[in-house]
Amino acid sequence: YLYFERQYFWHNEHGQRLYCSGPLYTDYVTSYIQELLTDEKVFPTKVGSGFPKGFVSLVQKIFLLLFRILVHIYWAHYHQAAKLDLHPHLNTLFKHFIIFSQEFALLEDSDTAVMASLITALC
């Protein structure tokens, strides 16, 4: 999980809290999501296969983790993105992410409160 004072921690498979850097946190998150996406029991690809119980909750968790990475990018790297003229792309990505999450109720307002002003401005 991510704290906005630039302290990051992740709970490993043993429930231990691991403090880590932003890049390591991002690696943990993306690796975890990749594992889920390639797990046939979680994201079935065969015709007739159903999604597991708790699927929506899992997708909400994935979206929360991805949101936290986007927040980190904005808070820690926005100036670099702007210098490279990448900020319009970042804003477009963020806007689409938020609109999709709102459409399917994947994030709570309390989860996104830290970025409420940007969400209001972009959406």
Rank of each mutant, 00 (worst) to 15 (best):
I69S: 04
A105R: 14
Y78Q: 07
Q60P: 04
H89Y: 12
P88I: 02
S117K: 08
I73C: 12
L93G: 05
L70W: 07
T45V: 08
L93V: 10
I73H: 14
D85F: 01
L84P: 04
H89F: 12
E103K: 12
I99G: 02
F63L: 05
I99P: 05
T112W: 03
V47G: 08
F63Q: 12
A113Q: 15
E103W: 02
L118F: 11
L107H: 09
H89V: 09
Y74S: 13
L93Q: 04
L65K: 12
D111S: 14
K46N: 14
I98L: 01
S49K: 08
R68G: 14
P88C: 09
R68D: 15
I99C: 06
I69A: 06
L118Q: 10
Y78K: 09
F67A: 06
L93F: 11
P52L: 00
Q102Y: 08
A105L: 10
H89A: 13
F97I: 02
V47E: 15
L90D: 05
I99A: 14
T45Y: 08
V114N: 12
L93K: 03
F97L: 03
D85G: 05
L65S: 13
Y74E: 13
F51R: 07
S101P: 01
I99R: 14
I98R: 00
F104L: 11
R68P: 06
H96M: 06
R68E: 15
A113V: 03
T92N: 13
F67D: 04
A113N: 13
L86K: 07
L58C: 08
K83F: 01
A81Y: 13
L64Y: 03
V114T: 11
S110N: 11
A81K: 07
A81N: 11
I98V: 10
H72M: 10
L70Q: 05
L58P: 10
D85C: 04
Y74V: 10
A81P: 07
A113M: 06
G48H: 02
G54E: 01
F104K: 09
K95L: 03
I62S: 07
A105Q: 14
F104Q: 14
I73V: 15
K83N: 05
I73M: 10
L65F: 12
T92K: 08
V56A: 09
I69R: 03
F43H: 09
K53F: 00
S101Y: 02
S117M: 04
T92V: 05
M115H: 04
W75G: 15
Q80P: 12
T112K: 06
V71S: 10
L58N: 08
H77W: 07
F51C: 07
I119R: 01
F55K: 03
L107N: 13
I98E: 01
P52A: 00
G54W: 00
I69V: 15
Q80G: 09
F63T: 09
V56R: 08
F51G: 08
I119K: 03
T112C: 04
I62K: 01
I73N: 06
L118P: 00
A76D: 15
S110W: 00
S57H: 05
T45I: 10
P88T: 02
L70V: 07
D109T: 14
Q80A: 11
L70F: 13
L58M: 04
Y74R: 13
F63E: 12
Q102I: 02
V56F: 02
G50C: 01
A116Q: 12
S110Q: 13
H87Y: 10
F104A: 06
S49F: 03
P52W: 00
S49Y: 06
A105W: 07
S49T: 07
